[in-house]
Nucleic acid binder design. Structure first.
Length: 571
RNA sequence: CGGGCUGUGGCGCAGCUUGGUUAGCGCGCUGCGUUCGGGACGCAGAGGUCCCCGGUUCAAAUCCGGGCAGCCCGACCA
């Protein structure tokens, strides 16, 4: 492509609304433009990257035996009612994603389990047709409360979603492992180090699932990693191993009630008590939640820790506090509380007394002892893991890593096939059986954002060849006034294109400074410069974007040697 | 959904406190000339409902009220 004809405007200044360096570069280099908050147009350069990423996805998924199709972006709301996800999303999110058209209500969905299940159910009658895995690459929608980080978190985004259908659980595991391996290869080819970690399944459903985490300073997720045994899990899910507990030999007098006016947070209580012996770790955090039976439950964790809720529980909301006056916001505590109480293992193991809420406005209790003044119905692992906590598998200290969730795969089991109509097949013994399903999501536009964030320097983007919009950025310096440069560059351009190299040909009549600055900004892995100076010696110059290494190449064989350089790894 | 900040040519910004020429600067854009292997220079131009609606005033980008949008922090997050 000739730059003189390209729909491209590069910007010298960072856009005012860019919140990450990678996104600012994508805008400055003319890859994307914001249309509305969280909604972007992919300009030609951005689309080329998406195409390359998509091609890699297609190659790997096809190689894994999956079949591409395209389902509608609109799905009838009846399907969501049948699957139960309409209710699961609650009254807020679903209407925002629902389109009322003449033909009825349609959901602009973020995933396609319902349509996929119905589709395969209609085409598959026999175990002989299984297993089958389908996938699509399509625009998804999400009622994002606060879009941010450019393409990383938008209202609309590109996603590859795959769905596997198997005759039994063991076979489902095989399909899952196959998809997981394919995703691992995709990330390898993209040059993005991604770690599969155990995670929560959220509104998708099912139990076994893994997120593919890419380490990044702009990540909104955190996962723990054990350098010794390899355990890796999202902090929302990560189990924490046994923490060293002291022998319990706490002796204090009876607990005392102290006035703590207005102190509804741990920090405020600690500041107000103003006792050197009492820090956040000696207070007890009482977190109100709703359990799987829709009953209130109070979780006790040390005051310096974050509570971790079992996946089927949710935090108390305003309505819950209103419905349960015994659960007092801000001054909640376990002593004399008329509710189910569970405690993190650290609570009974502590060798000290606690400061707890008094279940009365503006008051706390001091010198409260587990076993004497309160107990928990259950003791378990209820804290969010943090750096240095012991691994639940081997006890070694865990590392916490900031990351972006780039893909997420799930074993769905029978969650959808039991509720969606026709999601059955005839088994070998003649009985009718539900499909064992899995689903596999890969954030294509999110990966574009992660690539830009990962592969850049002060001068611009530095794409790995696997996802670069162009393989080669060809500069013709002063072509407008130096006919021999123009002739040589045009010939080289034609040769490279004939060899199948994707070339961005800067044939504009601009100064060398502008040409080079734009080449750096766009970030093709190799820049080839044709100039009068080189031609006098019969050479052109090839410069690697990432390293800055320069190679002089003989003009006569330039096309072939540049093409050869590309087939060798540039990264 | 709560708190804060911001809306001025394509992009980045100043002007607003203390109302008053023709609304300004840098980049970008058009034409001509010089220059040109790391964001050159001169000359001449084009381009603006100052987010919207209402109010105050002889007079509003500027003051007041309401709305909308964007961004940040938090809540939420398939």
């Amino acid at each position: 492509m000739r730059m003189s004809k390209m729909l491209l405007r590069t910007l010298r200044d960072d856009p005012a609304d860019a919140d990450t360096a990678g996104h600012a570069l994508l805008v400055r280099a003319g890859f994307v433009r914001r249309v509305s908050s969280g909604v972007y147009t992919l300009l030609p350069l951005g689309l080329r990257v998406v195409r390359r990423v998509s091609d890699i996805i297609r190659e790997e998924l096809d190689a894994a035996g999956m079949q591409e199709l395209l389902m509608p972006a609109l799905s009838p709301i009846e399907l969501w009612e049948q699957s139960g996800r309409a209710a699961k999303f609650g009254s807020d999110a679903l209407p925002a994603m629902t389109l009322e058209a003449r033909g009825g209500k349609f959901v602009l969905g973020v995933t396609h389990e319902e349509v996929a299940t119905v589709t395969v159910g209609a085409e598959v009658d026999s175990y002989r047709q299984l297993p089958v895995t389908i996938y699509q690459i399509q625009t998804k929608f999400r009622d994002e409360a606060r879009p941010r980080y450019g393409l990383l978190r938008g209202r609309e985004f590109l996603m590859c979603d795959a769905y596997s259908f198997d005759a039994d659980k063991d076979s489902m595991q095989v399909s899952y492992d196959t998809a997981k391996a394919a995703y691992v290869r995709i990330f390898e080819r993209l040059g993005l180090p991604a770690t599969p970690v155990e995670a929560l399944s959220g509104a998708i459903g099912g139990d076994v699932n893994h997120e593919f985490m890419v380490e990044s300073a702009i990540g909104e997720d955190h996962f723990v990693r054990c350098g010794t045994c390899g355990y890796a899990a999202n902090v929302e899910r990560a189990e924490v191993g046994a923490r060293p507990g002291a022998a319990r030999a706490v002796e204090t007098g009876a607990y005392r009630r102290v006035a703590t006016p207005g102190a509804t947070t741990i920090d405020e209580v600690v500041a107000l008590l103003d006792d050197a012996a009492i820090d956040a770790a000696r207070t007890l955090k009482s977190v109100a939640a709703v359990d799987e039976s829709d009953e209130p439950v109070v979780i006790l964790v040390p005051g310096d820790r974050e509570a971790k809720l079992p996946s089927s529980w949710r935090l108390f909301g305003d309505k819950d506090f209103a419905a349960h006056p015994e659960i007092l916001r801000g001054f909640l505590g376990p002593v004399g509380l008329d509710a189910r109480v569970v405690a993190d293992a650290a609570v009974p193991a502590a060798a000290h007394a606690w400061v707890v809420g008094a279940n009365d406005v503006d008051a706390h209790l001091v010198d409260v002892i587990y076993g004497r003044d309160f107990t928990a119905a259950e003791v378990g692992d209820y804290v969010t893991a943090r750096e240095g906590d012991p691994c639940s598998r081997c006890g070694a200290p865990l590392e916490v890593v900031r990351s972006v969730e780039a893909a997420h795969i799930f074993q769905l089991g029978l969650v959808y096939s039991l509720v969606m109509p026709g999601a059955t097949f005839t088994a070998e013994d003649g009985s009718e059986q539900p499909f064992w399903m899995g689903c596999y999501g890969f954030g294509v536009s999110r990966v574009l954002a992660v690539l830009a964030e990962t592969f850049r320097d002060d001068d611009g983007l530095c794409w790995p060849q696997s996802s670069a919009p162009y393989d080669v950025h060809l500069c013709a310096l002063g072509a407008g006034r130096t006919p021999e440069v123009s002739v040589a560059a045009e010939a080289l351009y034609a040769e490279l294109v004939a060899l199948g190299v994707a070339v961005c040909f800067d044939d504009r009549d601009v100064s060398a400074g502008i040409a080079f600055a734009d080449a750096d900004l766009l970030g093709a892995p190799l820049r080839v410069t044709v100039g009068k100076r080189g031609l006098e010696r019969g050479i052109v110059e090839a410069r690697e974007r990432r390293s800055g290494d320069v190679h002089e190449v003989d003009l006569a064989t330039a096309a072939a040697s540049v093409a050869a350089r590309l087939t060798s790894p540039l990264d």
